[in-house]
């Protein structure tokens, strides 16, 4: 497995790749230099810390520590999803519940089916994948809700004026937002293997695992992400849409 060793000096050479991106940003006046540098610094710092943390968690192999790590991942994912909610009331609580249930249910099913074992080396990466996909799905769903509640204000008002309940008023908006949240997962499921060789599969092949075995894992991951994003965006949308109305059943 020596061919897998990335030495610190090799990483330093990789910095040259960042310089290419920086040079392009400067030359083309894209104005992303600051974000690029922040991104690079954060990636290095965060991943280094996580590397050491994961090594420790995997070594001590305690259930509570594994669950704590999963909780941290879910909390961060919810915090990020809240950022895309554009001021929606209770966005953090809604995101936290949605991502918690999506991650919890999916992992519980995978463990119950024997697809993965309850060991930190499997639970933590899988939880990370699920939570991050749920986070993206929920973020997109929030954006769709915000856009629709703004653009479709008049037809929504007309439904309310005719005596529709909040659900009858907003159900088509909610459905569209769930669709929007799930569409990247469905699109990537359609093109998986044709366009992208996803991270998990690539990582296993990199590590010398038989590609057919790696593919079986990837199929599991694809299905798992479909379940997680649908659970996550459905919960988030159903809890979020009433926030667009006040207690008098009026549009905010």
């Amino acid at each position: 497995m020596t061919h897998l060793l990335v030495t610190p000096s090799a990483l330093v050479f990789a910095v040259a790749l960042v310089l290419v991106a920086l040079a392009i940003s400067l030359k083309e006046k894209i104005g992303l230099e600051r974000d690029l540098i922040i991104g690079v610094v954060r990636a290095v710092v965060q991943l280094t810390i996580v590397g050491y943390v994961l090594t420790y968690i995997i070594r001590v192999n305690r259930a509570w520590l594994t669950l704590l790590m999963v909780a941290v991942i879910i909390f961060n994912a919810a915090w990020n999803a809240r950022g895309r909610a554009n001021g929606l009331p209770h966005a953090f609580a809604i995101s936290l519940l949605a991502i918690f249930v999506a991650t919890g249910v999916t992992i519980a099913l995978l463990v119950a089916a024997g697809a993965i074992a309850f060991v930190p080396s499997q639970i933590v990466p899988i939880a990370g994948m699920i939570a991050s996909n749920a986070m993206v799905a929920i973020g997109l769903a929030y954006r769709s809700l915000n856009t629709q509640f703004r653009d479709l204000r008049q037809p929504l008002l007309e439904r309310l004026a005719l005596g529709a309940t909040l659900r009858q008023t907003a159900i088509h908006v909610v459905r569209e937002a769930i669709r929007t949240g799930m569409s990247p997962t469905i699109d990537s499921a359609k093109t998986v293997g044709l366009v992208s060789l996803p991270g998990m599969m690539s990582g296993l092949i990199f590590a010398g695992i038989d590609p057919t075995k790696a593919i079986m894992y990837q199929i599991m991951v694809t299905f798992m992400l479909m379940a997680a994003t649908s659970i996550g965006s459905t919960i988030a949308c159903y809890l979020a849409y009433p926030q667009f109305f006040n207690s008098d059943m009026q549009l905010r």
Partner: peptide, 15 residues
């Protein structure tokens, strides 16, 4: 909802 079904508002330039 019950009130709005009795007191029905028709918008100017409805969509």
């Amino acid at each position: 909802t019950a009130y709005r079904r009795e007191v029905s508002y028709c918008f100017q330039q409805p969509s």
